[in-house]
Design a protein around this nucleic acid. Sequence first.
DNA 1: ATTATTGCAAAGGCTTTGCACTAAG
DNA 2: CTTAGTGCAAAGCCTTTGCAATAAT
Lengths: 154, 154
Amino acid sequence: MATQGQNTLLVAANKLKNNKIKNTPQRQVILSYLMTSHDHPSIEMIFKYVRKNGFSVSLATVYNTLQLFVDHNLIIEIAADSGGHMRYDYFEIPHYHVICVNCNKIVDVFDDSYKKNEKIATVETGYQVLNSQYEVYGICPECQRKIKEKEDKI
Amino acid sequence: MATQGQNTLLVAANKLKNNKIKNTPQRQVILSYLMTSHDHPSIEMIFKYVRKNGFSVSLATVYNTLQLFVDHNLIIEIAADSGGHMRYDYFEIPHYHVICVNCNKIVDVFDDSYKKNEKIATVETGYQVLNSQYEVYGICPECQRKIKEKEDKI
DNA sequence: ATTATTGCAAAGGCTTTGCACTAAG
DNA sequence: CTTAGTGCAAAGCCTTTGCAATAAT
Protein backbone atom coordinates (compact mmCIF):
# COMPACT_ATOMS: atom_id res chain seq x y z
CA MET A 1 0.00 0.00 0.00
CA ALA A 2 2.18 2.86 -1.30
CA THR A 3 1.79 6.46 -0.27
CA GLN A 4 -0.58 8.30 -2.52
CA GLY A 5 1.25 10.13 -5.32
CA GLN A 6 0.26 13.65 -6.17
CA ASN A 7 -0.66 12.79 -9.75
CA THR A 8 -3.20 10.09 -8.93
CA LEU A 9 -4.93 12.60 -6.68
CA LEU A 10 -5.23 14.96 -9.64
CA VAL A 11 -6.67 12.19 -11.81
CA ALA A 12 -9.24 11.50 -9.11
CA ALA A 13 -10.00 15.22 -8.77
CA ASN A 14 -10.71 15.39 -12.48
CA LYS A 15 -12.95 12.35 -12.33
CA LEU A 16 -14.94 14.07 -9.58
CA LYS A 17 -15.21 17.27 -11.57
CA ASN A 18 -16.42 15.36 -14.64
CA ASN A 19 -19.10 13.78 -12.51
CA LYS A 20 -20.07 17.12 -10.96
CA ILE A 21 -19.14 15.93 -7.49
CA LYS A 22 -17.75 18.58 -5.19
CA ASN A 23 -14.03 18.14 -4.68
CA THR A 24 -12.82 17.46 -1.17
CA PRO A 25 -9.51 15.99 -0.04
CA GLN A 26 -11.29 13.01 1.47
CA ARG A 27 -13.09 12.19 -1.75
CA GLN A 28 -9.96 12.55 -3.83
CA VAL A 29 -7.97 10.21 -1.63
CA ILE A 30 -10.71 7.62 -1.42
CA LEU A 31 -11.32 7.63 -5.15
CA SER A 32 -7.64 7.54 -6.06
CA TYR A 33 -7.17 4.63 -3.70
CA LEU A 34 -9.98 2.71 -5.36
CA MET A 35 -8.71 3.61 -8.83
CA THR A 36 -5.09 2.64 -8.35
CA SER A 37 -5.11 -0.21 -5.84
CA HIS A 38 -6.23 -3.74 -6.40
CA ASP A 39 -7.13 -4.13 -2.76
CA HIS A 40 -10.91 -4.19 -3.18
CA PRO A 41 -10.92 -2.55 0.22
CA SER A 42 -13.49 -2.69 2.98
CA ILE A 43 -14.79 0.39 4.77
CA GLU A 44 -12.23 -0.02 7.49
CA MET A 45 -9.33 -0.46 5.06
CA ILE A 46 -10.32 2.77 3.36
CA PHE A 47 -10.67 4.60 6.65
CA LYS A 48 -7.21 3.54 7.78
CA TYR A 49 -5.66 4.27 4.40
CA VAL A 50 -6.90 7.84 4.30
CA ARG A 51 -5.61 8.59 7.80
CA LYS A 52 -2.31 6.85 7.08
CA ASN A 53 -1.83 9.25 4.20
CA GLY A 54 -2.16 12.25 6.48
CA PHE A 55 -5.75 13.27 5.82
CA SER A 56 -8.48 13.59 8.39
CA VAL A 57 -11.57 11.43 8.00
CA SER A 58 -14.38 10.03 10.03
CA LEU A 59 -16.09 6.74 9.40
CA ALA A 60 -19.27 8.65 8.63
CA THR A 61 -17.49 10.38 5.78
CA VAL A 62 -16.21 7.11 4.40
CA TYR A 63 -19.72 5.69 4.41
CA ASN A 64 -21.15 8.85 2.82
CA THR A 65 -18.48 9.00 0.16
CA LEU A 66 -18.74 5.37 -0.88
CA GLN A 67 -22.50 5.61 -1.13
CA LEU A 68 -22.06 8.71 -3.29
CA PHE A 69 -19.62 6.95 -5.60
CA VAL A 70 -21.87 3.92 -5.91
CA ASP A 71 -24.79 6.19 -6.80
CA HIS A 72 -22.66 7.80 -9.50
CA ASN A 73 -21.63 4.38 -10.82
CA LEU A 74 -17.97 5.15 -10.22
CA ILE A 75 -17.51 2.08 -8.05
CA ILE A 76 -19.35 -1.11 -7.17
CA GLU A 77 -20.03 -2.97 -4.00
CA ILE A 78 -18.77 -6.53 -3.95
CA ALA A 79 -20.66 -9.17 -1.99
CA ALA A 80 -19.64 -9.43 1.63
CA ASP A 81 -16.45 -11.32 2.34
CA SER A 82 -16.55 -14.16 4.86
CA GLY A 83 -16.26 -11.64 7.70
CA GLY A 84 -19.49 -10.07 6.50
CA HIS A 85 -17.86 -6.87 5.27
CA MET A 86 -18.74 -5.19 2.00
CA ARG A 87 -15.82 -4.58 -0.32
CA TYR A 88 -15.52 -1.81 -2.88
CA ASP A 89 -14.00 -1.65 -6.32
CA TYR A 90 -13.45 0.94 -8.99
CA PHE A 91 -15.28 -0.40 -12.00
CA GLU A 92 -14.33 1.01 -15.37
CA ILE A 93 -13.49 -2.15 -17.29
CA PRO A 94 -15.88 -5.11 -16.92
CA HIS A 95 -14.32 -7.88 -14.89
CA TYR A 96 -15.21 -10.36 -12.22
CA HIS A 97 -13.77 -11.35 -8.88
CA VAL A 98 -12.20 -14.49 -7.59
CA ILE A 99 -12.38 -14.57 -3.82
CA CYS A 100 -10.43 -16.72 -1.41
CA VAL A 101 -12.79 -18.26 1.14
CA ASN A 102 -9.91 -18.64 3.55
CA CYS A 103 -8.12 -15.26 3.61
CA ASN A 104 -10.63 -13.15 1.61
CA LYS A 105 -8.03 -12.09 -0.93
CA ILE A 106 -9.77 -10.87 -4.07
CA VAL A 107 -8.26 -10.87 -7.55
CA ASP A 108 -9.67 -9.58 -10.83
CA VAL A 109 -10.23 -11.49 -14.03
CA PHE A 110 -10.66 -9.17 -16.97
CA ASP A 111 -12.99 -11.27 -19.05
CA ASP A 112 -16.44 -9.91 -19.80
CA SER A 113 -17.95 -13.08 -21.27
CA TYR A 114 -20.16 -13.47 -18.23
CA LYS A 115 -22.02 -10.37 -19.39
CA LYS A 116 -23.51 -12.42 -22.24
CA ASN A 117 -25.93 -13.93 -19.77
CA GLU A 118 -27.61 -10.57 -19.34
CA LYS A 119 -29.43 -11.05 -22.64
CA ILE A 120 -30.74 -14.46 -21.62
CA ALA A 121 -31.86 -13.02 -18.29
CA THR A 122 -33.77 -10.25 -20.06
CA VAL A 123 -35.62 -12.69 -22.28
CA GLU A 124 -36.33 -15.19 -19.53
CA THR A 125 -37.58 -12.81 -16.88
CA GLY A 126 -38.79 -9.62 -18.53
CA TYR A 127 -36.58 -7.63 -16.19
CA GLN A 128 -34.99 -4.48 -17.57
CA VAL A 129 -31.39 -5.45 -16.89
CA LEU A 130 -29.10 -2.76 -15.52
CA ASN A 131 -25.97 -4.71 -14.74
CA SER A 132 -24.67 -8.00 -13.46
CA GLN A 133 -21.93 -9.39 -11.31
CA TYR A 134 -20.08 -12.65 -11.29
CA GLU A 135 -18.10 -13.96 -8.36
CA VAL A 136 -15.99 -17.05 -8.04
CA TYR A 137 -15.12 -18.58 -4.67
CA GLY A 138 -12.11 -20.75 -4.08
CA ILE A 139 -8.79 -21.06 -2.33
CA CYS A 140 -5.90 -18.85 -3.39
CA PRO A 141 -2.51 -20.39 -4.24
CA GLU A 142 -0.96 -19.13 -1.01
CA CYS A 143 -3.66 -20.68 1.16
CA GLN A 144 -3.48 -23.92 -0.84
CA ARG A 145 0.19 -24.08 0.11
CA LYS A 146 -0.51 -23.33 3.76
CA ILE A 147 -3.19 -25.98 3.95
CA LYS A 148 -0.94 -28.53 2.30
CA GLU A 149 1.85 -27.80 4.80
CA LYS A 150 -0.54 -28.39 7.67
CA GLU A 151 -1.68 -31.70 6.22
CA ASP A 152 1.88 -32.86 5.68
CA LYS A 153 2.63 -32.33 9.36
CA ILE A 154 -0.16 -34.66 10.45
CA MET B 1 -46.86 -18.40 1.26
CA ALA B 2 -48.87 -21.59 1.76
CA THR B 3 -49.06 -23.51 4.99
CA GLN B 4 -46.41 -26.19 5.22
CA GLY B 5 -47.71 -29.56 4.08
CA GLN B 6 -46.81 -32.64 6.06
CA ASN B 7 -45.07 -34.30 3.14
CA THR B 8 -42.59 -31.54 2.45
CA LEU B 9 -41.59 -31.73 6.10
CA LEU B 10 -40.80 -35.40 5.63
CA VAL B 11 -38.72 -34.67 2.56
CA ALA B 12 -36.77 -32.11 4.55
CA ALA B 13 -36.38 -34.55 7.44
CA ASN B 14 -34.88 -37.09 5.08
CA LYS B 15 -32.51 -34.55 3.64
CA LEU B 16 -31.32 -33.77 7.15
CA LYS B 17 -30.82 -37.44 7.95
CA ASN B 18 -28.84 -37.97 4.76
CA ASN B 19 -26.59 -35.11 5.77
CA LYS B 20 -26.21 -36.44 9.31
CA ILE B 21 -27.81 -33.35 10.78
CA LYS B 22 -29.87 -33.89 13.89
CA ASN B 23 -33.57 -33.58 13.16
CA THR B 24 -35.49 -30.86 14.93
CA PRO B 25 -38.85 -29.34 14.05
CA GLN B 26 -37.23 -25.94 13.49
CA ARG B 27 -34.70 -27.32 11.05
CA GLN B 28 -37.30 -29.28 9.15
CA VAL B 29 -39.57 -26.29 8.72
CA ILE B 30 -36.76 -23.97 7.70
CA LEU B 31 -35.33 -26.41 5.20
CA SER B 32 -38.70 -27.31 3.71
CA TYR B 33 -39.46 -23.62 3.33
CA LEU B 34 -36.23 -23.06 1.46
CA MET B 35 -36.76 -26.16 -0.67
CA THR B 36 -40.30 -25.47 -1.75
CA SER B 37 -40.64 -21.71 -1.88
CA HIS B 38 -39.17 -19.38 -4.42
CA ASP B 39 -39.05 -16.54 -1.92
CA HIS B 40 -35.28 -16.44 -1.45
CA PRO B 41 -36.15 -15.37 2.06
CA SER B 42 -34.27 -13.17 4.47
CA ILE B 43 -33.62 -14.10 8.09
CA GLU B 44 -36.69 -12.21 9.19
CA MET B 45 -38.93 -13.79 6.56
CA ILE B 46 -37.83 -17.23 7.74
CA PHE B 47 -38.36 -16.33 11.38
CA LYS B 48 -41.90 -15.14 10.73
CA TYR B 49 -42.70 -18.07 8.50
CA VAL B 50 -41.74 -20.66 11.09
CA ARG B 51 -43.83 -18.98 13.79
CA LYS B 52 -46.75 -18.49 11.41
CA ASN B 53 -46.75 -22.25 10.88
CA GLY B 54 -47.15 -22.89 14.57
CA PHE B 55 -43.59 -23.78 15.57
CA SER B 56 -41.52 -22.04 18.18
CA VAL B 57 -38.27 -20.40 17.12
CA SER B 58 -35.89 -17.73 18.22
CA LEU B 59 -33.86 -15.54 15.92
CA ALA B 60 -30.73 -17.17 17.34
CA THR B 61 -31.95 -20.54 16.10
CA VAL B 62 -32.65 -19.16 12.66
CA TYR B 63 -29.13 -17.77 12.46
CA ASN B 64 -27.63 -21.02 13.75
CA THR B 65 -29.65 -23.16 11.42
CA LEU B 66 -28.90 -21.17 8.29
CA GLN B 67 -25.20 -21.16 9.07
CA LEU B 68 -25.38 -24.91 9.55
CA PHE B 69 -27.11 -25.41 6.20
CA VAL B 70 -24.63 -23.17 4.43
CA ASP B 71 -21.76 -25.15 5.93
CA HIS B 72 -23.34 -28.36 4.65
CA ASN B 73 -23.80 -26.83 1.20
CA LEU B 74 -27.55 -27.34 1.36
CA ILE B 75 -28.26 -23.68 0.76
CA ILE B 76 -26.42 -20.58 -0.39
CA GLU B 77 -26.33 -16.99 0.75
CA ILE B 78 -27.27 -14.49 -1.90
CA ALA B 79 -25.63 -11.07 -1.86
CA ALA B 80 -27.41 -8.53 0.28
CA ASP B 81 -30.52 -6.96 -1.18
CA SER B 82 -30.75 -3.17 -1.27
CA GLY B 83 -31.87 -3.16 2.35
CA GLY B 84 -28.59 -4.81 3.29
CA HIS B 85 -30.15 -8.14 4.21
CA MET B 86 -28.74 -11.48 3.21
CA ARG B 87 -31.11 -13.75 1.36
CA TYR B 88 -31.04 -17.55 1.37
CA ASP B 89 -31.77 -20.11 -1.29
CA TYR B 90 -31.90 -23.86 -1.54
CA PHE B 91 -29.36 -24.73 -4.16
CA GLU B 92 -29.68 -28.15 -5.77
CA ILE B 93 -29.84 -27.22 -9.44
CA PRO B 94 -27.37 -24.58 -10.67
CA HIS B 95 -29.11 -21.33 -11.44
CA TYR B 96 -28.61 -17.64 -11.05
CA HIS B 97 -30.66 -14.78 -9.68
CA VAL B 98 -32.22 -11.75 -11.26
CA ILE B 99 -32.84 -9.13 -8.60
CA CYS B 100 -35.09 -6.09 -8.78
CA VAL B 101 -33.22 -3.03 -7.52
CA ASN B 102 -36.54 -1.39 -6.71
CA CYS B 103 -38.56 -3.98 -4.78
CA ASN B 104 -35.87 -6.65 -4.19
CA LYS B 105 -37.92 -9.37 -5.83
CA ILE B 106 -35.64 -12.24 -6.85
CA VAL B 107 -36.36 -14.72 -9.62
CA ASP B 108 -34.38 -17.76 -10.74
CA VAL B 109 -32.95 -18.48 -14.17
CA PHE B 110 -32.11 -22.12 -14.58
CA ASP B 111 -29.20 -21.79 -16.94
CA ASP B 112 -25.80 -22.98 -15.81
CA SER B 113 -23.71 -21.55 -18.65
CA TYR B 114 -22.22 -18.99 -16.28
CA LYS B 115 -20.42 -21.89 -14.60
CA LYS B 116 -18.18 -22.20 -17.66
CA ASN B 117 -16.24 -19.20 -16.42
CA GLU B 118 -14.99 -21.23 -13.48
CA LYS B 119 -12.47 -22.97 -15.74
CA ILE B 120 -11.14 -19.66 -17.02
CA ALA B 121 -10.88 -18.37 -13.47
CA THR B 122 -8.89 -21.42 -12.42
CA VAL B 123 -6.38 -20.99 -15.23
CA GLU B 124 -6.07 -17.23 -14.85
CA THR B 125 -5.66 -17.07 -11.08
CA GLY B 126 -4.38 -20.41 -9.82
CA TYR B 127 -7.23 -20.47 -7.32
CA GLN B 128 -8.74 -23.84 -6.50
CA VAL B 129 -12.30 -23.00 -7.47
CA LEU B 130 -15.08 -24.23 -5.20
CA ASN B 131 -18.11 -22.54 -6.65
CA SER B 132 -19.36 -19.37 -8.26
CA GLN B 133 -22.37 -17.12 -8.27
CA TYR B 134 -23.89 -14.89 -10.89
CA GLU B 135 -26.34 -12.12 -10.13
CA VAL B 136 -28.20 -9.85 -12.47
CA TYR B 137 -29.64 -6.54 -11.33
CA GLY B 138 -32.52 -4.81 -13.03
CA ILE B 139 -36.11 -3.70 -12.75
CA CYS B 140 -38.87 -6.27 -12.62
CA PRO B 141 -41.84 -6.03 -15.00
CA GLU B 142 -44.17 -4.89 -12.22
CA CYS B 143 -41.87 -2.06 -11.15
CA GLN B 144 -41.33 -1.06 -14.76
CA ARG B 145 -45.09 -0.62 -15.02
CA LYS B 146 -45.31 1.37 -11.79
CA ILE B 147 -42.48 3.66 -12.86
CA LYS B 148 -44.10 4.22 -16.24
CA GLU B 149 -47.41 5.14 -14.61
CA LYS B 150 -45.68 7.71 -12.44
CA GLU B 151 -43.94 9.25 -15.43
CA ASP B 152 -47.16 9.43 -17.40
CA LYS B 153 -48.76 11.45 -14.61
CA ILE B 154 -46.08 14.15 -14.78
C1' DA C 1 -22.04 34.53 0.64
C1' DT C 2 -24.30 30.37 0.01
C1' DT C 3 -24.59 25.69 0.05
C1' DA C 4 -22.65 21.29 0.86
C1' DT C 5 -19.43 18.40 3.49
C1' DT C 6 -17.12 16.90 7.53
C1' DG C 7 -16.85 14.82 12.00
C1' DC C 8 -18.24 13.80 16.48
C1' DA C 9 -21.10 11.43 19.49
C1' DA C 10 -25.25 9.20 20.19
C1' DA C 11 -28.79 6.21 18.52
C1' DG C 12 -30.26 2.28 15.95
C1' DG C 13 -30.42 -2.31 14.15
C1' DC C 14 -28.77 -6.65 13.11
C1' DT C 15 -25.97 -10.56 14.65
C1' DT C 16 -23.57 -13.16 18.06
C1' DT C 17 -22.79 -15.07 22.63
C1' DG C 18 -23.48 -17.34 27.29
C1' DC C 19 -26.04 -20.13 29.78
C1' DA C 20 -29.95 -22.75 31.57
C1' DC C 21 -33.50 -25.66 29.80
C1' DT C 22 -35.13 -29.07 26.75
C1' DA C 23 -35.13 -32.43 23.16
C1' DA C 24 -32.94 -35.93 20.02
C1' DG C 25 -30.60 -40.25 19.16
C1' DC D 1 -28.19 -41.62 29.22
C1' DT D 2 -25.35 -38.56 26.64
C1' DT D 3 -24.77 -35.12 23.52
C1' DA D 4 -26.63 -31.41 20.98
C1' DG D 5 -30.14 -27.77 20.05
C1' DT D 6 -33.21 -24.12 21.53
C1' DG D 7 -34.35 -19.68 23.32
C1' DC D 8 -33.88 -15.75 26.10
C1' DA D 9 -31.58 -11.72 27.26
C1' DA D 10 -27.52 -9.23 27.16
C1' DA D 11 -23.48 -7.84 24.75
C1' DG D 12 -21.15 -6.49 20.52
C1' DC D 13 -20.39 -4.53 16.30
C1' DC D 14 -21.28 -2.09 12.27
C1' DT D 15 -23.91 1.57 10.19
C1' DT D 16 -26.74 5.57 10.24
C1' DT D 17 -28.30 10.01 11.98
C1' DG D 18 -28.45 14.89 13.90
C1' DC D 19 -26.26 18.83 14.35
C1' DA D 20 -22.56 22.28 14.84
C1' DA D 21 -18.29 23.56 12.76
C1' DT D 22 -15.87 23.93 8.54
C1' DA D 23 -14.71 24.11 3.75
C1' DA D 24 -15.87 24.49 -1.33
C1' DT D 25 -17.55 27.11 -5.30
